[in-house]
Every structure is written in structure tokens, then in C-alpha cells.
């Protein structure tokens, strides 16, 4: 019904959005990236792995439509088709919410694998929104991944935790344990980037962070007022009013799909008086 390209088998690529540290923008990024992929026409599903602390549904704006969840599917109480929530804005976007009432023990490796395998049959991209920390939920979110987006703020504890997570990606994943020819492909997404503070020497630069983590860069998302606004109204920032953050996510999404997009540092310039009168061109 929704897949027009019937001849082409789905890509079935699993991408985990992870970070170790909380509050760095994992869910914001998972929502924006999945919406961006869907906007390009790729059939995309985004899964909330944060059992007991469900929030992806709010960021995606579908919190009132949750009936069955990931855990119901794992435990056989509902079928996957019933738990998937179809986005009202994009035909190709689906959300698999998690349970608000169960705890992380409800996630089993076998259950997660079965659900992911079923999703691979139908979706091009499967985005796993990891919980913070490195416990069971986070481990299972990354375990079956093909690629990883490590969300990092240019700040000491975030960079340190990202380094720890990169270590886990290289050792505690299916690809690592099975000795796959290609390990999980990690890339860093720097969020809450503030050029003003970097210029004043108050914040580590992108180069600083990359030098420490030694992984390729997926994108640079500026600190932006648009992110709070988008979460307030339950719209992924990429689908909300045009913003520097939205643009940065669009570029990151293009890179995820293999496009070679020049790395730019977007920044949210507050429009000056003259610009406000004559309008902005972005």
C-alpha cells in the first residue's frame, strides 16, 4: 500500500542513535533523522528503547495514539502491525513506542531480534532510539545495529561517555561478537554546538572533539531555539518551521544515505532589524 517501489527490496538498515550521557539530544536526533529519511521517501520506522520512560511518542507528537507497544509485541500480546503508529504527516514514517509501565527486563535479545528481523522485511531504515546509560536497554538498542550515530555535546562528560559507547559498539554488538567483516559503522553527531562560545574559547571545537573520539563526523547541529519549540508542539525539528538545526539535520540525513554533503556550521543568527523588515532568505 505505502511502498510504491515494489520491485525494490527494502534496504533494512538498522541505525542506533546513542550517546551514553543523557540529555544530549538522542530522542530529538532520532525523531529528526527518521523524519528526514522518511521525507526523502525512504520507508522508516523509529523505535523507542527507553522502557519505562517513554518519550519518543511525545517528540513525534503521537502520544495520544499509543495502543500497543514494543514490549507487547516482544511478549506476543500484539502483532507488530498493530503496534506501529503511522505518522500523520509523512506516509513513509512509522513509530514503534515503548512501554511506560514495564521495566527494562521486559526486553530480551531474542525478542528484539525477532522484531527487528520482521521490520527489516518492510523498512529501508530502522532507527533505534537508545536510552541513556549503558544498561540493558542501551545495549540492546545497539546490539543489532549496522550503523551508529553517537550524539555528543562539546562538553567533557558527554565526550567521555561517547568514547565509552564507541568502545561498546566495537565489542558488545552482534557484528563485533560474530566477527563480521564490517563492524558497526560509527559516526559522531555533534549537537548543541555554539559558535559564539567557541569563538570566546568557552567551548571545545568540532576538531577538538573529533581528535579525541577519532570517528568520522556525521553532522554539526547548532544550539537552536527551534529544538524546544519543536518538542513543545510534538513535531520533529526537521518538519517544523525552517531552522538552522533543521537544516543541519537534513544535511546529516543526506550523509547517512551516502550523499557527500559539504560540512557546514549552521548557526542560528538572530535576525537584525533590517533583516526583520525585509525578511530572511532561509
Amino acid at each position: 500500500m505505502t511502498t510504491q517501489l515494489k520491485d525494490k527490496p527494502p534496504l533494512g538498515k538498522i541505525i542506533v542513535i546513542t550517546s551514553g550521557k543523557g540529555g544530549v539530544g538522542k530522542t530529538t536526533s532520532a525523531a529528526a533523522i527518521s523524519a528526514g529519511l522518511a521525507k526523502l521517501g525512504h520507508k522508516t520506522v523509529v523505535i523507542d528503547f527507553d522502557v519505562g520512560l517513554r518519550n519518543l511518542d511525545m517528540i513525534m507528537g503521537c502520544e495520544r495514539r499509543v495502543v500497543f507497544d514494543f514490549i507487547n509485541v516482544i511478549q506476543g500480546d500484539a502483532r507488530l502491525k498493530q503496534a506501529l503508529i503511522k505518522d500523520k504527516r509523512l506516509e513513509t514514517l512509522f513509530v514503534l513506542p515503548t512501554s511506560q509501565t514495564r521495566d527494562k527486563d521486559a526486553l530480551t535479545k531474542e525478542g528484539v531480534e525477532a522484531v527487528l528481523n520482521e521490520l527489516k522485511e518492510e523498512f529501508d531504515y530502522i532507527i533505534c532510539d537508545s536510552p541513556a546509560g549503558i544498561e540493558r536497554g542501551a545495549q540492546l538498542a545497539m546490539y543489532f545495529a549496522d550503523e551508529a550515530v553517537v550524539v555528543t555535546n562539546p562538553e567533557v562528560s558527554s565526550v567521555r561517555d561517547s568514547d565509552r559507547v564507541l568502545g561498546l559498539l566495537a565489542s558488545k554488538t552482534h557484528r563485533a561478537e560474530k566477527g563480521a567483516s564490517e563492524p558497526v559503522r560509527p559516526r559522531v553527531l555533534i549537537t548543541r554546538h555554539d559558535q559564539g562560545r567557541i569563538d570566546k574559547g568557552e567551548m571545545m571545537t568540532v576538531e577538538d572533539v573529533l581528535e579525541i573520539l577519532a570517528v568520522p563526523l556525521l553532522g554539526i547541529v547548532p544550539e537552536s531555539q527551534a529544538v524546544l519549540r519543536a518538542s513543545n508542539v510534538g513535531v520533529p525539528v526537521i518538519l517544523d518551521e525552517p531552522s538552522a538545526a533543521g537544516k543541519a539535520y537534513e544535511d546529516a540525513v543526506a550523509r547517512l544515505t551516502g550523499e557527500d554533503v559539504e560540512m557546514k556550521i549552521e548557526s542560528e543568527k538572530r535576525p537584525g532589524f533590517i533583516q526583520r523588515i525585509f525578511g530572511r532568505s532561509a
Binding site: 519549540r229 518538542s231 513543545n232 508542539v233 510534538g234 535576525p271 525578511g279
Partner: peptide
């Protein structure tokens, strides 16, 4: 859209209200 700066400003309190209502 031409007066984007103004329209965004006017809308800002509204999104906070939306957030509160949803919660």
C-alpha cells in the same frame, strides 16, 4: 513568511502553552 522574525516571536508563547496542554 516575509516577516518571519515577527511571526516567530508572536508564536513563541503559543508553543509553550501547547507543551503544557499536551503534558
Amino acid at each position: 513568511m516575509s516577516l518571519f522574525g515577527f511571526s516567530l516571536k508572536a508564536r513563541r508563547p503559543k508553543s509553550a502553552q501547547t507543551a503544557k496542554d499536551r503534558l
